[in-house]
Write a protein that binds this DNA or RNA. Structure first.
Length: 426
RNA sequence: GUGGGUAUAGCUCAGCUGGUAGAGCAUCGCGUUGUGGUCGCGAGGGCCGCGGGUUCAAGUCCCGUUACUCACCCCA
């Protein structure tokens, strides 16, 4: 056991796993990029008050899962537990809300929650997120949802469901909330649940315990008590999803852990993941910006779990980012050959060929072994004979076929071979 | 925060009723001259998580502790 270990609950990715992780992140962030979302790089920590006001004081995320600390100036800071609040702050601070609307941004990176770790639940979790601020068009909701769906599908995932509901607005939610609290008050619940029912009654709906679920028979749902506007909005969202060919399941008991959600709320659930099955989720947050001191602009967004999406890929037998890391591997015999291959490789990289080289003084055999392990389809072998003849040996690793190539024509020939074997990537 | 499980080689694990440690994979080398993947041979690598106890003797039994892990809670 190593003396120094990574902090508890922090996943690390390296080797093929690192490639897979990166591939997942890219796949999830590609749809937003193609839809005109701009990249934002956000701070990893913010003023604690931002999360208390934005995410909600009563949420578990803020109440007991934040990494909060004081800096040297006595300011209370917190590692970001989610991304939306930070984007709102950035948009307000830099007056993005005064410009072209909607403001569409995406981001990716680590978030932090001090939870007890388990499969798919980490203290440092990775997300790809997106926010669209300044439009309440229900078709935007549909598009936002479709962009998430597209990301998952582009990885080859199919064993997941989109759960969809509407959480109402400040007009219809209070009435429903009272109705629900009235219902919950008559149930036999433990203290903790009773308290939750008082603070955020919606939360009780997705309690997984059978003892609670049995009693929820006949509970009123928000979707059945939407005001006319919310109801029309929800209909239009569903219509948009139909146009985009996105399938969903009505999930009236769906609850989001963050307080700011209004109207459209959704979650992507993977069927093969066990307890931590949510691979992404989001929704509308029409009152959030004004509550943080900005204009009263509506917004919608999502966060997709990069770690969990990778686990979902595992579960479905998918291997994102697999394949060789380089196209050509250099096998030198002798110092002069190594130096020449270093130069040649540099030039090859310049035209987009991925190249690696057997560094160090090693024998041909061992260098060939390294070439094999690199996965490169082509190997360039150079020794004294080749130097004398002004050539290099180009070996096709799959077939074992070798050819003498004039030094000056190595580059075009390599490009041609890579092109014809079509196994190239960027 | 609440419950359960597991800690032995880099990785995956075996080690039955206590007798001072094994396999597969991986790594490195060899199988003669400048050729990888297959095959054969060999080598390196372990305070058996940590601390205490029982015993002539503990990887093995008991207690504690720490870490990991799964589930609840919560969420990505």
């Amino acid at each position: 056991m190593a003396e120094l270990q990574a902090p508890k609950g922090v996943p690390e990715y390296f080797g093929p796993r690192g490639a897979a992780f990166r591939a997942v992140r890219e796949a999830l962030s590609l749809p937003p990029q193609r839809a005109g979302y701009g990249y934002v790089e956000l701070p990893v920590f913010e003023d604690t008050a931002l999360y208390v006001r934005g995410v909600g004081e009563s949420t578990d995320v803020v109440a007991k899962e934040m990494y909060t600390f004081e800096d040297r100036g006595g300011r209370s800071l917190s590692l970001r537990p989610e991304g939306t609040a930070g984007v709102m702050r950035l948009a307000i601070e830099h007056s993005l809300d005064r410009g072209q609307l909607p403001v569409k941004v995406w981001y990716a990176g680590p978030f932090f929650r001090a939870e007890r770790p388990q499969q798919g639940r980490y203290r440092q979790l990775q997300q790809v997120g997106l926010e669209a601020i300044g439009s309440s068009d229900p078709l935007l909701d549909a598009e936002v949802i479709a962009l998430a769906d597209e990301g998952f599908r582009s990885l080859g995932l199919v064993q997941f469901t989109l759960q969809l509901t509407s959480l109402g607005c400040r007009e219809c939610r209070p009435g429903y909330r009272e109705l629900l609290q009235g219902f919950l008050a008559r149930l036999d619940l433990d203290d903790a649940t009773r308290e939750r029912a008082a603070i955020n009654p919606l939360r009780v709906l997705d309690d997984k315990r059978a003892s609670v679920q049995q009693q929820l028979e006949g509970v009123p749902y928000m979707v059945d008590h939407l005001c006319a506007d919310c109801s029309a909005h929800y209909d239009a969202v569903r219509d948009g999803l139909r146009r985009l060919g996105v399938q969903w399941t009505e999930a009236p008991a769906l609850v989001r852990g963050l307080d700011y959600y209004t109207r459209t709320a959704f979650e992507f659930t993977h069927h093969l993941l066990g307890a931590q099955s949510g691979i992404g989720g989001g929704g509308r947050y029409d009152g959030l910006m004004s509550s943080l001191g900005g204009q009263d602009l509506p917004g919608i967004g999502w966060g997709l779990g990069t770690d969990r999406t990778l686990l979902a890929c595992d579960a479905e037998g998918l291997a994102p980012g697999a394949g060789p890391g380089v196209d050509v591997f250099g096998v030198p015999m002798g110092d002069e050959a190594r130096g020449r291959l270093l130069e040649l490789g540099h030039a090859l990289r310049g035209v987009g060929v991925r190249f690696d080289l057997a560094f160090g003084e090693r024998g041909l055999k061992s260098a060939m072994k390294a070439a094999d392990r690199s996965g490169a389809p082509l190997t360039l072998i150079v020794g004294d004979q080749e130097i004398a003849a002004g050539t290099a040996v180009l070996r096709d690793m799959a077939s074992g076929a070798q050819e003498q190539v004039p030094w000056e024509s190595v580059q075009p020939i390599v490009l041609q071979r890579l092109d014809s074997s079509e196994g190239t990537t960027t």
